[in-house]
Design a protein around this nucleic acid. Sequence first.
DNA 1: CTACGATGTTAGATATACCTAACAAAATGT
DNA 2: ACATTTTGTTAGGTATATCTAACATCGTAG
Lengths: 218, 218
Amino acid sequence: MISLTEENYLKALFNLANHAGEVNVNELSKQLSIKMPTVTSMMKKLAEKKLVHYESYKPLRLTEKGKKEAGLVIRKHRLTEMFLVDKMGFGWEEVHDIAEQVEHVRSVVFFDKIDELLGFPKIDPHGAPIPDKNGKFAWIAYDKLSDCHAGETVRVSAVIHTSSEFLKFLNNREIRLGTKIKIKSVESFDGSMVVSYDNRSADTLSHTVCERLLVEKE
Amino acid sequence: MISLTEENYLKALFNLANHAGEVNVNELSKQLSIKMPTVTSMMKKLAEKKLVHYESYKPLRLTEKGKKEAGLVIRKHRLTEMFLVDKMGFGWEEVHDIAEQVEHVRSVVFFDKIDELLGFPKIDPHGAPIPDKNGKFAWIAYDKLSDCHAGETVRVSAVIHTSSEFLKFLNNREIRLGTKIKIKSVESFDGSMVVSYDNRSADTLSHTVCERLLVEKE
DNA sequence: CTACGATGTTAGATATACCTAACAAAATGT
DNA sequence: ACATTTTGTTAGGTATATCTAACATCGTAG
Ligand SMILES: [Mn+2]
Ligand SMILES: [Mn+2]
Ligand SMILES: [Mn+2]
Ligand SMILES: [Mn+2]
């Protein structure tokens, strides 16, 4: 049995993992706002449960079992977010905190029903992939808008670091998943972009914003 | 702040309260499957928080504040059950255990949205009243079917002691809220009733079943 | 009216999940 | 290479929510 607390650690470990699947105690501690000694002792417990590979002073890695369990929690989180947006009428900026709680509900039928009512969605309201029932992710390779060039036309496919403030900013600019953006110019000075989309003919997006928008080239 | 555990105690206290609003430690202990010493110490904590009137060896009583908080938890529980049945397609026998978890979600907008999507329902899928936003109940006086007499025609308005098994039994007999029942005869021997409803012309319902069905006379 | 069974409390223990203070190891910069 | 900073661990403590064993009180049946 994996506790609510353990589920949150697994999710954070998965989300922080680098290319090599490694996470430092310090990063995890900051992510969860839990002090390092507490994290260390939880890692020892998760290692006992074969969910994490733990060796003193070495980076943390999820085991295969740990990845699967993390995937299943993320699945519940993202299905919940999608349900809140598509079936209940919440904005994409409102759903994360609610999903953070609902993801811990223990009921297979509950999430199966959500999945079914949504028509077995593959992505959540922020464009992130929803893991399958085995906790497996179908990775999709998007580009950051900040890595694109003047003259290109792209479509917004996902947002990263989805704070409520950032999402409200996008709401104000009327940028959502699917918005088709033409890059008119890029300021080499600060990386900001002048773009056009929908009825807006010349909006400026800061580098900070462009880094957080994942796009597909047309 | 009221913890998940405290919410469950408050709900149980409310549901067990007799005419005088009193509950014994022993009853509460059995209801929650938690040993008496644990219950005693939790009652002291709830008394500190002004949610329960506690005196050694006296029956437990919720304070006004305690009743309000209990009402609010029951509100969340029953709104959840109604949503699961009406909007998600679960059967009334499936929803209690899921609601037992979802009721602890801390989000005013979440339950407000559920309430709105349901059209501000007054009763849950088992016919129990849904408290208002101040935790106040609108009590409705129903009769037990077992207190009715041969020749009377009644409509099923609520079910009590809503175990999954009992609700599945009612599903098999095609008895639901709103079913109009004619009492053809009552066995004085064991209190069982011969009734007709819908297409069924002579079904027998045991006293145990009749006690658990709340009805309105036509 | 008292003895006994039921009910309730106290005392002390355990598990989980968190903390701070102190110490140890690793990484970094001059 | 060594001092300093950053990262990580150990030791020991707290709060919550549970338990069992022992003791106390209550209610009632004889
Ligand atoms: Mn989220
Ligand atoms: Mn969470
Ligand atoms: Mn219920
Ligand atoms: Mn509950």
